[in-house]
Design a protein around this nucleic acid. Structure first.
Length: 919
RNA sequence: GCCUGCUUGGUGGAAUUGGUAGACACAACAGACUUAAAAUCUGUCGAUUUUACGAUCGUGCCGGUUCAACUCCGGCAGCGGGCACCA
């Protein structure tokens, strides 16, 4: 039957199953569509498909890590996602993280890499103890219950983890080995015990991290936090500071290779905070000698990065905890009072920074080392930190804002010693370092940098200075007065002092009969656990009751994944095979602490002989947060998105009582603001693959992601549409097993290949490139375009595209989707090509590079840089041909008529710009 | 305050790294199918202007380089992130 007149050309055909379909190729009916009984227009049955493939993966051990032989080493690929804390439920942030990791792991595996893709649990930490205090569940029970629940969700998500390598950091096996590593570090001199100031909660009897101090009060007890000196176990991360800093330069991304984001490298550089300067000695003035005759040091040592400003110095300021201040306070009650006041003030660095600058004139005076006739006062000051430099500074008010404020407050002289290069006088404080020295005797007239070198040379010669580099980074205090952590394997003996636990006695196990109702560290008031005999003298001794900071566990878990069953902490060969991690994916919130500690550990373990690669993570992908609008009711209470209803007039009300709701801006999903979407509910409603596709769509991985359930539904519709497309194909075609093999073997020229095959290869190339650049959202956009091409052409071109070619096209289409939607892709693959389900994961399609470009190109024609017309021409046409063709165009003629052509610019295969005289 | 990013339709975002701005989606609107709805399919969707063909403007703002600028340079504004008495 054929149409005529205004009716489109239509062909009605009846297929094998007796269904009718219409084919048309008119503009209004360009779509191939099918008349289907409503029962046939069914959706992708995600539940059964997911269940089926997850079962197959598990029984066939599809995600087991391959063993590597020698020649495989170039093909190894270690894909790692930051291990989660088992808080109880998988949240959307996790889903995003693990989807990125899984797409990469599956893509790498499909392209022939030998992939290690493990998962585990960062299982020690406070929430488990809080749960114990609140509901009496033992931390261990609570933690393992959570692990079980979260693991079930991850399995349901279809993430390709090798679960045989799963580890929980709270297991004896893991922390026992960790204790051994701790002892080896101790033997190497990398562990020491130190007294330092901590935030102490006097009600809970525990140390608080800075983040746990809120407005100077303990976050749990509400008690006023005090500073307390406490013995701590510390790790000498500062021994590695130069390497930690220098290697950052090698980690960045280049044209040739991916690397770490520049942002993270910058943050680590700042955290390390290297500054070069000098230690400068200030002698005490003669009139102070009397008060200082019993003081241990004959002079005051100050660290400065700006020694060239010494001629403008007018005071020294010391930390309240500086030994000189402590010494003077013994004889000066009001100084002691001032020091006391400083100690009581809120103690976090952020609250310190807003506090007013306060000083106390000690009455002591020091001599200016470059001008010994001049003396100036020594203050105790609340803004000087004992932890940085020497805990003492000299102030040059003219060239430092803080010193300027201080000098004004206490009426100290302000003398300019640097003037800007181009003007006679600076607006003070002048803090720039480009300038010329003035009022500085032998330095006057020099540039700042010359003066700095000069003055240090001069002072060093006299023995009054020593060049020195200081860092912001401090040694890592790993002690926590907590129960649910790795016990520090040390013993305190009243006779022999502190002794390491003999390695044969490891692991030091956590006791399980613990009382959480008393405040303080449960290990400390356990009746028997800490009683032990001294390994040296055999006398009565007691265990260290501090446990390790949980960052300790996360600093080496990625190494243990290489050899999870090893009887030593690490198996050198296995680690050498897999390390470094090729792709590390996680949240940017770990940019500094975790990633710095892990790098440090990696270096230490190299030096302990466990591995060779000094940097653990080659490429770091830091993903953005998952955000959602948060809602508040009239009373300012947070409301779950699920409890909010949008009325026809656009207003928002509470479902329960129809009271108005206010929508706040989108921010990171968090329990406290209730702006959370439960991944499991989304998986139940739309299926896992829809969720996986959605979370990888639209937004680049590194940016924050605004949750949008409508758009998730769009991904679900996309899967249904593809599902229907496949049903149509199945009705029309049967692909024999040798068909594809035949097609792939065949070499094809541009002329032989049907258009759709060329299109498929063009998109395959784009999708592959996008994935190589981690542009997942673009890969999916291209896949949608490919789907549309297939949809628009498969019916129409049935005779022009024989079955072998179509088989190849559909292979590309299905395999390119597999990393994103593995269940769907496998099911489609199985129903089209592989009815026996023999295939448990798909290979990446083979690209026919020579077909991946079309033989014609569109040339844009511009006149004076403005687009006026386009035309089609065969690829790689000569410039002269392009020019003639372009100038021939009617529209172009209109624009250049009667004007003189000045110049013509030609970009091969792209564009033609005709520059004419403009009148 | 210092250091960093970022700024493109109603929204998320593309743009082969200087060469056709708005791919692909979400939302919205219109139409087809349907008794109706849902689903599905089709179309429209930066602004101004034009009956129409089209034209002009348009990538936070101002200026520059260039045949050609979202892209490069200089200045400004806004938003986000990191660090914050660091001597």
């Amino acid at each position: 039957m054929q149409g005529f007149g205004l009716l489109p050309f239509v062909e009605v055909k009846q297929d094998k199953k007796g269904l009718f379909s219409l084919k048309g190729n008119n503009g209004t009916l360009s779509q191939f569509f099918r008349i289907l009984p409503s029962a046939m227009a069914k959706n992708y049955p995600f539940r059964s498909v997911e269940e089926k493939w997850q079962k197959i993966w598990s029984t066939k051990a599809a995600h087991k890590t391959p063993t590597l032989s020698g020649e495989d080493s170039a093909k190894k690929c270690y894909v790692l996602e930051m291990l989660p804390y088992p808080s109880g439920k998988i949240h959307m942030g996790h889903v995003r993280n693990y989807c990125i990791g899984d797409v990469l792991a599956r893509f790498k595996k499909a392209t022939g890499h030998k992939v290690l893709h493990p998962m585990g649990w960062d299982a020690f930490g406070m929430p488990a103890e809080n749960a114990a205090m609140q509901n009496g569940t033992a931390p261990k029970t609570w933690t393992y219950q959570n692990i079980e629940a979260m693991k079930a969700t991850l399995l349901a998500l279809g993430v390709s983890y090798d679960w045989e390598r799963e580890l929980a950091t709270c297991s004896e096996d893991y922390y026992g080995h960790e204790q051994q590593l701790f002892l080896e570090m101790y033997e190497k001199g990398l562990v020491y015990r130190n007294e330092s100031w901590v935030n102490w909660d006097p009600v809970d009897n525990t140390v608080l991290a800075n983040e746990q101090v809120i407005d100077g009060k303990g976050w749990r007890s509400g008690a006023l936090v005090v500073r307390k000196k406490l013995p701590h176990w510390c790790l000498r991360i500062t021994h590695y500071v130069e390497e930690l800093l220098a290697n950052l330069d090698t980690l960045g991304a280049t044209h040739e290779k991916a690397g770490w984001p520049e942002k993270v490298l910058t943050m680590q550089r700042h955290w390390i905070g290297k500054s070069e300067g000098g230690l400068i000695q200030f002698g005490f003035s003669e009139d102070s000698a009397d008060r200082l005759k019993d003081y241990k040091d004959p002079s005051l040592v100050v660290f400065s990065t700006r020694p060239e400003t010494l001629f403008g110095a007018s005071f020294c300021a010391l930390a309240p905890t500086h030994p000189l201040i402590e010494f003077l306070a013994q004889a000066d009650a009001s100084l002691a009072q001032f020091v006391q006041k400083c100690h009581e003030a809120p103690t976090t660095e952020s609250t310190l920074s807003v506090a007013e600058k306060q000083g106390y004139d000690t009455g002591i005076r020091v001599k200016n080392p470059v001008k010994p006739t001049e003396t100036f006062p020594v203050y105790a000051a609340n803004f000087v930190l004992m932890e940085y430099g020497t805990g003492a500074i000299f102030g040059c008010p003219a060239h430092d804002e803080r010193d300027f404020d201080f000098a004004k407050k206490y009426h100290l002289p302000i003398v300019s010693v640097i003037r800007p290069e181009n003007s006679a006088e600076a607006v003070l404080p002048y803090v720039e370092t480009n300038g010329i020295m003035e009022n500085s005797e032998f330095l006057t007239g020099l540039t700042v940098l010359e003066a700095r070198k000069n003055v240090l040379d001069a002072l060093e010669k006299k023995g009054d200075a020593l060049r020195k580099t200081t860092y912001r980074l401090r040694d890592w205090s790993v002690s926590r007065q907590r129960y649910w952590g790795c016990p520090i394997p040390m013993i305190h003996c009243p006779k022999c002092g502190t002794q390491p636990v003999p390695k044969a006695d490891l692991p030091v196990l956590l006791p399980e009969d613990v009382d959480f109702q008393k405040s303080g560290n449960p290990l400390d008031h356990h009746p028997t656990w800490k009683n032990v005999t001294c390994p040296q003298c055999g006398g009565e001794a007691h265990r260290e009751t501090d446990t390790l900071d949980t960052f300790f566990e996360s600093s080496w878990y990625f190494l243990r994944y290489c050899c999870p069953k090893a009887t030593t902490p690490l198996d050198r060969d296995a680690v050498a095979q897999w390390m470094p991690v090729d792709l590390y994916i996680g949240g940017v919130e770990h940019a500094v602490l975790h990633l710095l500690y892990a790098r440090f550990f990696n270096m230490v373990l190299c030096d302990l002989g466990y591995l060779e690669a000094r940097e653990p993570f080659s490429v770091l992908l830091s993903q953005g947060m998952v955000c959602h609008t948060s809602f508040q009711d009239e009373k300012g209470q947070w409301v779950y998105p699920d409890d909010v209803e949008s009325l026809a007039n656009g207003r928002l009300v509470k479902k329960a009582d129809q009271t108005p709701i206010r929508a706040m801006r989108a921010e990171k999903m968090s329990k406290s603001k209730k702006n959370i979407i439960d991944p499991e509910r989304m998986m139940d409603t739309y299926g896992v693959d829809a969720l996986r596709i959605f979370i990888m769509s639209d937004t680049p991985y590194e940016k924050d992601f605004d949750w949008n359930t409508d758009a998730l539904e769009g991904s679900w519709r996309y899967l249904n549409k593809m599902w229907r497309l496949c049903e149509g194909v199945r009705d029309d075609y049967t692909f024999s097993e040798d068909l594809l093999a035949f097609s792939l073997k065949k070499t094809l020229t541009q002329e032989e290949a049907p258009l759709l095959l060329k299109t498929a290869h063009r998109y395959l190339k784009k999708i592959t490139q996008a994935l190589d650049q981690f542009a997942f959202h673009k890969a999916l956009a291209f896949h949608r375009e490919l789907t549309r091409e297939i949809e628009n052409n498969v019916g129409k071109e049935a005779h022009a595209c024989d079955e072998a070619f179509l088989a190849e096209i559909l292979h590309i289409w299905c395999e390119a989707l597999a990393p994103f939607a593995p269940h769907f892709a496998l099911e489609v693959y199985a129903t089209l090509f592989e009815p026996k389900d023999a295939c448990v994961e798909l290979k990446w399609p083979v690209l026919r590079e020579d077909l991946a470009y079309s033989e014609t190109v569109t040339i844009a024609v511009q006149v004076n840089g403005k687009l006026r017309e386009t035309f089609e021409i065969e690829r790689d046409a000569e410039d002269a041909v392009l020019q003639t063709e372009g100038l021939k165009l009617e529209k172009i003629q209109k624009f250049i008529q009667g004007k003189k052509i000045k110049k013509i610019f030609i970009v091969r295969n792209k564009l033609l710009n005709i520059v004419v005289e403009d009148r």
